[in-house]
Design a protein around this nucleic acid. Structure first.
Lengths: 372, 372
DNA sequence: ATAGTAATTGAAAGCGTTTACATCTTCGAT
DNA sequence: ATCGAAGATGTAAACGCTTTCAATTACTAT
């Protein structure tokens, strides 16, 4: 506007014509109560003798400011102990550099392993992660997602593909990408594995060994696309051989070790001829419970009863006998999910489905069935 | 200002008198790219026919607005699907309703249990929690704290009382209160227990039973005010009876189950007369490792070797034999820490030290020493 | 009715960044 | 030297809330 200007610049002169601001209560570096105020970008700018915009650039796009200026800013920032205010940045950029994760439960080691590696990967990329657990409840999960969305997370990692429909709607509305984990989907981006196939293979292994009466016990299957397919896999394998899994041998328990103990009692309570000779469990915790109860009752594993777990938890290899289980690389799931989500948030939607392959780890809890 | 207005609104009209703003790119409810913009408080205000200040009040201090107004605002908010922008609020109020937690490791069940209940309590109070793990490293911890502080957490929960001095300085500068957990302190607010006393009692229990050669194995004790005192407790109990804990029976291992197995080998490698008859472990994981190795080598627990764990992890009760261990109520620690921190953040500094009492849970891995 | 007080509401100034745009430098090419 | 283009920096407008202060309205007690 004003080309040649004296000590009073054009824009400042304007404010004399326009008396809107009564009096700015500024008094740098100390609060109303006298406490030292934390330094802000403006303080750094003044100390470095540059504008606040330059400070911002020096910090975020160093290559856009001249080296000498950059140094000055860095020095000033360090001197003042300047810490950028994330809230202000988030407000300004409309992104929080925060992502959310919701796992069904912290009680299942596999989820905390995945969460942990997810988090590590995210942190390396400059993101913080807000985690919550849904306790296997859709409503709780929805609520947590609502909170996370309000918190402005830039992305979301969810376990499984069954969620409140409103969840997808809200995430969509906020343009927050979601990565699904631990199960596969052809509609969502995901990092997971085929749960049905995993137990299908385990069941076939048992069947090949000569077992005829298998049992399967999992945690809740309601709204759960991991547990339900795992049970299905066993049914399927038996059906393929013209066998039928007795309803009494298909148990749903509340997850955890003690649930496994109860399961044992229910399964092994009937007359010997009808008892299963092998049990496939939805988690290693359940398997542990079963083993514990078996040991207490003097039932020999694997001679009298074979057991297969799921996840290969840390304790599984050191049980006696060591637990044969379906290993899932939770670290890989966490890491890949993070990478995929990062990709999604960068709008480079090149990922689609990452398929993890579970592996049957042969240890000591499986043997051919006893001769009748 | 302008009451009845045609297509051109009051504020826009103003800009003709005051030419500072080139052209406000406002066009409510749709973005530059035509995408529908998420509703903000202003939209709610307009729909409800009130000012934005009233919207804020209706949402945050409902009692301060007339019921009829409140209803109108709520209705408008619901209709628009309004979600408050946390970043804006955080910027404005200078608090984020977020707290941070740093645990040494997610691999120790006790920490995730505490974290979990801490989180649950915090969520109930309207706070989100950002968690991180330090991997038992002070520098990593400091770095994570720096991130959390930058993120503007309102409070911090840390495990133990040994941290980078800079950590306290920074937190202090940001006026972020810290709650220390799992150990006691007379300088900091804390929720924990006397680690030394816990093993001291366990050792005495063993000594009373007739054991003379105890061993202790813990994870790293460097900068660790839980593991180190636990070892001390054992030393102390023996010293009180004129006994001395052989250096060979005092082991530091990397934590985890496999570490326990190694420990066993080291401890039980010597000539029988010198082997310990009882081992006190810093965690149940270590104890499990020891039990596993013992079982493999045919050493009978508890007859040939007694073992005491620490924490009472979920698997401990179902091992065979079930593990005698020092139970720590991690849920309580998490919950109380949260409550205490909430209190601290409310500036009502009435809490000081919450002392948790660990309990020796007698199960099957301890017996009197074999007759020599 | 009427003054006085209490309860509601609104206007507008922040909160601390980022960033579009304008301005000023720098520098190579003429 | 001089012109332009490219590069560096500065200005000031957002971002979307909360909150102080003033203005308005609703009540209460005369």
């Amino acid at each position: 506007m004003v080309k040649p200007s004296g000590p009073v610049t054009g824009t400042q002169a304007l404010s004399t014509i326009n008396p809107e601001h009564p009096l700015p209560r500024k008094n740098r570096s100390s609060n109303s109560d006298g406490r030292t105020r934390l330094p802000v970008a403006q303080d750094v700018a003044e100390l470095a003798g540059v504008s606040i915009a330059t400070v911002s650039r020096a910090l975020n796009e160093p290559e856009k400011v001249r080296p000498v200026t950059r140094e000055a800013v860095m020095k000033a920032a360090a001197e003042l102990g300047f810490v950028l205010n994330s809230a202000a940045r988030a407000l300004s950029t409309r992104r929080s550099s925060t992502v959310g994760v919701i796992v069904p439960s912290y009680g299942n080691e596999v989820f905390v392993r995945a969460l942990s590696s997810f988090q590590r990967t995210m942190r390396a990329a400059g993101y913080q992660v807000l985690a919550a657990s849904s306790e296997y409840d859709l409503a709780t999960e929805m609520q947590e997602v609502a909170f996370l969305l309000q918190r402005g997370v830039d992305g979301l990692m969810l376990v499984g593909g069954i969620h409140d429909p409103a969840l997808y709607a809200r995430a969509e509305r906020s343009q927050v990408p979601i990565i699904q984990s631990f199960s596969l989907s052809d509609r969502e981006y995901c990092v997971g594995f085929d749960n049905r196939e995993a137990t299908f293979r385990a069941a076939n292994y048992l069947l090949d060994l000569g077992h005829k009466r298998l049992a399967v016990v999992t945690g809740t299957r309601e709204n759960n696309d991991r547990a339900a397919p795992r049970a299905e896999g066993v049914h399927l394998a038996m059906a393929e051989r013209g066998l039928k899994l007795s309803p009494a041998h298909d148990l749903i328990v509340s997850s955890g070790i003690v649930a496994g103990r109860d399961a044992f009692s229910q399964l092994m309570g009937g007359p010997e001829k009808q008892r299963p000779t092998a049990i496939i469990c939805g988690t290693d915790e359940i398997a542990l419970g079963i083993m514990s109860e078996a040991s207490e009752r003097g039932i020999d594993i694997p001679r009298a009863l074979s057991v297969i777990g799921f996840n290969d938890s840390s304790f599984s290899a050191v049980l006696s006998p060591p637990l044969t289980t379906i290993r899932v690389d939770a670290d890989e799931i966490g890491k890949s999910s993070a990478l995929a989500l990062l990709n999604l948030m960068g709008a480079r939607t090149t990922v689609q489905v990452t398929r993890i392959t579970p592996e049957l780890v042969l240890r000591g809890t499986v043997a051919p069935p006893e001769k009748l």
